[in-house]
Design a protein around this nucleic acid. Structure first.
Lengths: 160, 160
DNA sequence: TTCTATTGACCATCTTTGACTATTATAGCG
DNA sequence: CGCTATAATAGTCAAAGATGGTCAATAGAA
C-alpha cells in the first residue's frame, strides 16, 4: 500500500517533470494530503536530500515557501554530496583550497567566485583558536558549496 | 501571491529607475496598496536602509512627504574602507545581507557572487557552539569584501 | 523487534496592522 | 502680529497573523 510519504514524493516529482525546480506552500501541501505539516519536512528530508540529488530552499513568514531544486548530474553524479562528505565537520585550509581549485577547473565557478570562496575559508577570515578554525571553516564551506550548486541550477551565472 | 512588501519595494524602485530620488506621500502610497500606512515604514526599514544604500528624509504635518534617495558612491574611492569600518569587529546577519544587496544593486557583484556571500555569512554557516557569531561573521565578511574589490580591480568578472 | 512513518507541541522568522505619539502648516482669535 | 487650536501628516512599537522548522513521542510496517 502506498504510504503517505510515497504519495507526497510522487506528487512533488510529478510537479517537477517539466521544470527542474518547484515552489510550494508547506501548509497547503499538508492540507492537500490531510497530514501534519511536518510530514512534508519528513518527505523532503528522506527523499529530496542532497544525496538524492536535490537542494531545498525555504522561507518562513507571510509569503513563505519551500523550493525544491533538482541538481543536474554533470560529470560525476552527485558531486555535491561527495564534496560535502569530504568536508564533513572539519576541514583544513589546504583541502578547502584544493576543492575550490577543482571546482574552478571543472568550470563550475568563475575566477571571482573561487577567489571569494578562498577569502571566506582563509586562515585570516577565521580568527579563532586553531582547533576551532577547521570546524568553522567546514561549516562556512559546506554552506558555500551548496550555494555553488544552487547557482548552477538556477542559472545565476551569466558569466564566462 | 507576491508579498505586499515586495510589491511596494518594486513599485518604489521602479519609480527610481530614472532619478536617484523619489518623493511620495506615505498615506497615498498606503492607500494605493490598500494597507496600513505603517506598512510603508516597514518596507523602508527593511529594504531601503542606509546599509542598502538609501537615505530616507521625511517631513510630517501638512504637505508632509517621504523622500527616498539612492546614495551615489559611484566611483567612491574609499568605499571599501567605509564598508570595512561599517562591519568592524562584529556584524549581524541583517546588516551583512543589506550590504550584499547594496553591492549587487551597484552591480559590483553578480547574483551568484552575492548568493555565495550570503551563504558564507548566514546563520546556518555559523551555527556553531560558539557565542561570538557576529564577531566571526565580521571576520569572514571583511575578508570577502576585500576580495570583491580585488576581483573588480583585476577584472576577473567577464560576465554580465 | 527494528526500521520507517506520522503527529503534535513548541520554536523561529517575516509580514501586517493598529493604537498611540510627534511634527508641521494654517486658520482663527485677541 | 503673535498665539493657539485644529487638521494633516509621518513615526514607533508591540501584538497579531502567516508561514516554515525541529524534535521527541507514538504508531505502523517489515
Amino acid at each position: 500500500m502506498a504510504q503517505l510519504s510515497d504519495s507526497i514524493e510522487h506528487f512533488i516529482k510529478d510537479l517537477m517533470t517539466e521544470d527542474a525546480h518547484v515552489e510550494l506552500r508547506r501548509n497547503e501541501l499538508a492540507q492537500h494530503f490531510g497530514c501534519a505539516p511536518s510530514q512534508i519536512n519528513y518527505v523532503l528530508a528522506t527523499r529530496f536530500s542532497v544525496d538524492h540529488g536535490y537542494i531545498i530552499e525555504s522561507r518562513r513568514g507571510g509569503g513563505g515557501y519551500v523550493r525544491i531544486v533538482r541538481m543536474q548530474t554533470r560529470g560525476e553524479p552527485n558531486l555535491l554530496n561527495i564534496l560535502l562528505n569530504r568536508v564533513g565537520n572539519s576541514v583544513d585550509e589546504e583541502t578547502a583550497v584544493a576543492i575550490i581549485s577543482n571546482l574552478r577547473e571543472r568550470d563550475m565557478v568563475t575566477d571571482s567566485e573561487a577567489a571569494l570562496m578562498r577569502a571566506a575559508v582563509s586562515r585570516n577570515a577565521l580568527a579563532l583558536p586553531i582547533s576551532a578554525k577547521d570546524v568553522l571553516r567546514a561549516a562556512v564551506f559546506r554552506n558555500m558549496l551548496v550555494q555553488v550548486f544552487k547557482n548552477l541550477e538556477e542559472g545565476k551565472r551569466h558569466d564566462v
